[in-house]
Each structure stands twice: as C-alpha cells, then as structure tokens.
Amino acid sequence: MTSYQFNFDAAIGAIPQLLAGLLVTIELSALVMALSLPLALMVALGRLTRFRLARAVTYGYTELFRTTPLLVQISWIYYVLPIALNLHPSAFVSAVIALTLNLVAYLAEAFRGSIQSIDPGQREAGLATGMSEAAVLRRIVLPQAALRAVPLVASNWIGLFKNTSLVAIIGVHEMLFVAQDVAQSTYRPMEILTVAALIYFAVTFPQSLVVNRLFERFRVIE
C-alpha cells in the first residue's frame, strides 16, 4: 500500500458539474433512442422484404455497424461530415448521428428476431381470412412482435446509456468528459472517477432492474 491520502473534497465539489454532464448523457440517449426506433423498424422490414436490393443494403448496413467498434464509427462520422460533405455540425450533432447509426443496426436485428419469432401459423391464419400481406403484417404480426421487442429495446437502452460515454473523445460534454476534465484540473482522478462511476451505477442499476422485470413480464411461453 502506498500512503495515498484520499480526499473527496474536489470530487464532491464537482458533483454539480458531473450532474450537468449526466443531463447531457440523458438528453443524448433520449434523442438517439427516439430517432432510432422508427429507423430500426424500417431496416428490419428491409431485411425481411422480398426485394433483393433492399435486403442486401440493409444486411450490409447492419453487419457493418455491428462488426466495427463504435469508437471508430464516432471518429469516422466526426470527420466524414466536414471532409466529404462539407457540413460542420457541432460535436453533439455528430455524436447523435454516430450513436443513432450504431443503435439502429442493433435494434433492427432485435426487431427482425422478434418478427421472425412469431409463429408462421399466425400469418397463414390471417391470409386465410382474406387479409392482404400488408394487413397481416400491420394487424397481426407487428403487434405481437412489438410485445416481444419491449425487453430488447429496454436492454438496448441501457447499452446506449453507457455507450454515450464514448463521445467524450470528440469533446461532447457528457459526464465522462466532465469527469476527466475536472480530474485533470484538480489532480484527483481517482476520487472523481469513482464518484462518476457511482453516479452511473445509481442511474443505470435501477434501469437494469426494470429491464429484468420486463424480460420476466414479456417472456414468451410456448
């Protein structure tokens, strides 16, 4: 053991700043989730359509974003917009775009799985009563699939909430960025990072309990 003197004064003094960072984390997560849900549904349907081109494009998209690190995606979006498209959005907007593109890929796979898990007999029954394919999808398959997707969306939400910490590298002032910033100016990295981790835990853990409940609630018994 070293004779390190713990001093949480700086960390406690930084709590208001950390909470302001937490607010950005929450805003970012909420915005990204709201944008991702409809987009992910479209991508999922694209994966399941009989149009080969749509299937190929959506497949390429989901695999690309699920097999490359989010950190690389964030860096890439941060540079591609100004260099290739001559757009100069704020770091926050870049972050929203990168996180959304990433989340859509994962959510789309969750949606596809939920849709495919619906018994084909359901579709047959709908068609047999004279419904169109579109009506069967909208009135019979999607409502059942939506219930199964609820816990998956919730656990993706937790993942997103934690992943927002990555946009600290492009300078978005979310909680981890604030923590590192304060850590550097006060030379108390250990205490401040500990407090930041505890805040993450305090906010995320109750949400994971809800996710567990949702998994039990919506568990499919077949």
């Binding site: 910490s165 981890l176 250990m190 990072l193 500990t194 930041a196 981790a197 853990f205």
Partner: peptide, 16 residues
C-alpha cells in the same frame, strides 16, 4: 460492472 460504462472502468483501473 453491468451498470457502468466499460470506458470509465478502464480509465478508473488505470488511475486507481
């Protein structure tokens, strides 16, 4: 470990 971001775990361990 499931309720905090990996990134903060990595940085935390590095300092702590």
């Amino acid at each position: 470990f499931r309720s905090t971001p990996v990134l903060i775990q990595i940085i935390w361990l590095f300092f702590v």
